[in-house]
Computed example of a mutant assay.
Amino acid sequence: MTESLWDVSAADLRARTASASPTPGGGSVAAVTAAFGCALVLMALEITARRDPSVGDAITAGRSLLDRLGRAADRDVELFEDYLRARRLPRSTDEERARRQEAVRAASVAATEGPLTAAGDAVEALEWAFAVLPAVAGTVVSDVRAGADLLLGSALATLRGAEANVAQLGDEAAALTARLDAVRRAAVAAHARIDRTPEGSR
């Protein structure tokens, strides 16, 4: 991939996603969604900072998360394209078939590890959103909650793609499935903590 998803217009990204092209797919769209969820929380903090500069460290942490979540969008496209290249390797001889099988296995593992990392970053962003929620100015608390909703949806959607990749694996499948389940539980639990936080709990 030579062009970042962040360099195209929103309309172009929407059109590409709705086309017959396999990329951008669920993982990259989920990563874009996570980045916007994180951005909503940052917006709430930036507004709060006008009268409460003590949230500066939280803003710095959020911008680091935003960068990581944003990079995951392009990384997902790269990983899927690597997988497609492995699938297209020749398989006319036993040696070629063995080489192709190993390449597909390695690409499938990488295409599972990538979404796992991205979903883990979304969980970290949810935990950050929970931590900053009490400090946010009352009028933009809803943006923090909306951002958290997007982060949860992103984490769950990202794991869907990882599950599809695990289905292609053999011995590594059990360990990766356990990690997927753990990240899913962590995402749901982190979001639930935000949901349980009452308004005006500062």
Rank of each mutant, 00 (worst) to 15 (best):
P24R: 03
P24N: 10
G25H: 10
G26A: 12
A30G: 04
A30Q: 02
A31P: 12
A31R: 09
V32W: 08
V32Y: 06
V32T: 09
T33S: 15
A34G: 15
C38P: 06
A39S: 14
A39F: 02
M43K: 15
L45N: 06
T48P: 08
A49I: 00
V55D: 01
V55K: 00
G56I: 01
D57K: 05
A58E: 13
A61P: 00
A61T: 08
A73Q: 10
A73D: 11
R75N: 07
D76E: 11
V77R: 05
V77E: 04
L79I: 05
L79W: 03
E81M: 13
L84V: 11
L84C: 00
R85C: 01
R85Q: 12
R85W: 00
R87M: 15
R88I: 01
R88T: 03
S92N: 11
S92I: 07
D94Y: 00
D94R: 11
D94S: 12
E96Q: 15
R97Y: 02
A98R: 15
A98N: 08
R99L: 14
R100L: 07
Q101I: 03
Q101T: 13
E102S: 12
E102Y: 00
V104C: 07
V104W: 05
R105P: 04
R105Q: 05
A106W: 00
A106I: 04
A110L: 15
A111K: 12
T112G: 12
E113D: 13
G114A: 15
P115M: 09
P115D: 09
L116H: 14
L116S: 13
T117D: 15
T117W: 14
T117Q: 15
T117R: 15
A118W: 07
A118S: 14
G120C: 11
D121P: 02
D121T: 12
A122I: 10
A122M: 12
V123L: 05
E124H: 01
E124A: 14
A125L: 06
A125D: 07
W128K: 01
V132D: 02
L133T: 04
L133C: 06
L133S: 07
P134D: 10
A135M: 10
V136N: 08
V141W: 07
V141L: 15
V141P: 03
S142M: 09
S142E: 08
